[in-house]
Computed example of a mutant assay.
Amino acid sequence: MELRPIQLSDRDALADAYLAAYPPGVAATTLSDAQQEMDDTFAGEFGTLRPDLTRVAVFQGRPVGAILVVGKSIWDPQLRGPFIIDLFVHPDVKGMGVGRALLDEAVHACAMAGDATVSLRIGEGTSPAAHALYARAGFEPLRD
């Protein structure tokens, strides 16, 4: 597996992985919807993409997952620093440590860029495995 910066040419393969990664009805419902999500991500609809922090996992020559990081959350103004808008892995490679490698790489890249913190949001489509991954990486829920 290779981790590398995201490229516009990854759009279709990432849309396929994105669609396959989530249970039906949680994220995109069609490949066209998933492609639109990728287009919106590249266009900055969810915040300005940080290419220095965003990574794509490539397995056997095919993008199979990504961690998408923007400069700051557009949904949670109280959060500082980079914000992970998505982390997804195609089911074909689940259990191979792809998600952990992507998260570790992004957190390390944040530290190397001088960012003191990185945040994310969990929701309906967040799997128990993702919850465990985030907890192992040291992410903690915000306290009121």
Rank of each mutant, 00 (worst) to 15 (best):
V89L: 08
V64D: 04
G71K: 11
R55M: 03
A34P: 03
V98D: 01
V56E: 05
F59D: 09
I6D: 08
A101L: 14
G123Y: 15
V70K: 01
S9A: 15
L31R: 03
K72I: 07
P23A: 13
I122K: 07
F42E: 12
A116M: 06
V56F: 00
V26C: 04
T48P: 02
A113D: 15
Y18K: 03
L14H: 10
P5V: 08
V93H: 05
R62L: 05
G114M: 11
A57L: 02
W75M: 01
L8R: 14
Q78V: 08
F59I: 12
A21R: 04
L68Y: 03
G47A: 00
V69H: 02
L102Q: 04
G71S: 11
R100H: 14
A28M: 08
F83P: 11
S119Q: 08
T117L: 11
Y22F: 15
R50W: 06
T29D: 07
V56Q: 05
M112K: 14
D10N: 10
V58I: 06
D33M: 01
L19N: 01
V70I: 01
K72L: 07
L31H: 02
R4N: 08
P23W: 08
P91K: 06
A34M: 03
P91Q: 04
D115A: 15
M112D: 15
G65W: 03
G25R: 10
P82S: 13
V56W: 07
E2Q: 09
P82Q: 08
G95Q: 12
M38V: 04
D39W: 02
E37K: 12
L79D: 06
V118M: 13
M112R: 15
P5C: 12
P63W: 09
F42Q: 09
R11N: 13
V26M: 11
L102K: 09
T30L: 01
G123C: 12
D76I: 13
R11Q: 15
L53G: 07
R62C: 08
Q36K: 12
S73R: 05
L120G: 12
W75H: 07
L19T: 00
P91C: 05
D16H: 07
S32R: 05
Q78P: 00
A109I: 11
D92T: 00
L102V: 03
L49K: 00
G125P: 00
E124R: 14
V89W: 08
R50C: 12
E2F: 04
I84H: 09
G61F: 04
T29E: 10
V107N: 11
V98K: 12
P77T: 11
V107W: 10
